[in-house]
């Protein structure tokens, strides 16, 4: 143990004494906390400060990206061929389902037109990658490699191939912070597919568990029920799978059932996510759903050209 170091004790504190300095900085910290908690004044400053630290997060992420890159490049021929065959099968399977989907969507739109209600159009998506860094270890937050510059916005829903992942909570320009559905601070409005029962799924802080705290004791819910986003609240587009009910427990004396569900998305393994923008255009004519892309193209040749060229910037500004 060194008794004295070269950085020795005399002239230790110049300027304001340590007590005063502490007082000033503590006051500053408290003011920052209050402003940040109100969430109005600091948003810009905070996002630009966080953007400064993004290189550090990228540096931490670099080995993971490099390992993935190496894995992709060093994969053997057979592995690639096998993978390719798998993908081809998957595409065929999904394309087959999509064919029916187009017909169903058109039918749905016609029905909705008959009922004179809003047609649900497909959602706009933006692909983002989760940067491999841990934020607060007690919370479930992630950093995305897309931000406001690429069209992400606060409140935007995140999904992966299996289901809802979370939502964007902070935009940092080139990157964004997102909250996972399992964060204890997060809740998703959901609907039980089998019964149409609506409730709220709250995060537990455990990556493979959501809790449904507001289920009445006589609610019709069973293990294995699929929960999809209900679209209430306007943040999450309706109809994406959120979780499957894994346990229903009704302890006598409790006012509500204790229901837990397992998230559909692979929250601990997901790397690529889709940022979804709901496109709920009110009173859309029913044809506008699926066949619209191909059908009117031949008669009005210049017309589709112009909207196509206008469309990307238009969506960009809208977001």
């Amino acid at each position: 143990m060194a008794l004295s170091t070269p950085d020795s004790e005399p002239r230790l504190f110049h300027g304001p004494g340590p007590g005063l300095r502490l007082l000033l900085l503590v006051t500053l910290a408290v003011v920052l906390m209050v402003l940040d908690h109100r969430n109005e004044h600091l948003v810009r400053i905070r996002s630009s400060m966080a953007a400064l630290l993004y290189p550090l997060q990228q540096a931490v992420d670099a080995p993971v990206t490099a390992a993935r890159w190496a894995g992709e490049n060093l994969a053997s021929r057979e592995t690639l061929i096998r993978e390719n065959a798998g993908f081809r099968r998957q595409i065929l399977d999904q394309a087959g389902r999509l064919q029916r989907m187009a017909a169903l969507e058109a039918e749905n739109a016609r029905m909705r037109a008959l009922l004179d209600s809003t047609a649900k159009v497909g959602d706009d998506v933006l692909i983002a990658e989760i940067v491999a860094v841990d934020m607060d270890r007690q919370r479930h937050r992630v950093v995305l490699n897309r931000g406001g510059e690429s069209g992400a916005f606060i409140g935007q829903a995140l999904i992966d191939a299996q289901g809802v992942v979370g939502q964007v909570i902070r935009d940092r320009g080139a990157s964004a912070e997102a909250l996972l559905i399992t964060d204890p601070d997060h809740a998703v409005p959901v609907e039980v597919v089998r019964t149409g029962l609506r409730t709220i799924a709250v995060g537990t802080g455990d990556l493979d568990r959501l809790s449904l705290p507001f289920m009445a004791r006589n609610a019709d819910v069973r293990t294995g029920d699929l929960l999809v986003s209900s679209g209430l609240g306007g943040k999450f587009p309706a109809g994406y799978p959120v979780a499957t009910v894994s346990e229903v427990r009704g302890d006598s004396g409790e006012a509500f059932l204790a229901v837990t569900a397992r998230p559909a998305a692979a929250l601990d393994r997901v790397r690529e996510v889709l940022l979804v923008t709901p496109q709920a255009t009110p009173r859309e004519p029913p044809q506008a759903v699926a066949p619209d892309d191909q059908a009117p193209a031949p008669p009005a040749a210049p017309a589709p050209g112009t909207p196509a060229s206008v469309a990307p910037p238009a969506t960009g500004t809208a977001q």
Binding site: A29, D36, R46, L53, M135, D136, R141
Partner: peptide
């Protein structure tokens, strides 16, 4: 900033 916490929490 890295943890997405309340700004000033760890600073304090």
């Amino acid at each position: 900033l890295l943890g997405g916490n309340l700004l000033g929490q760890h600073a304090l």
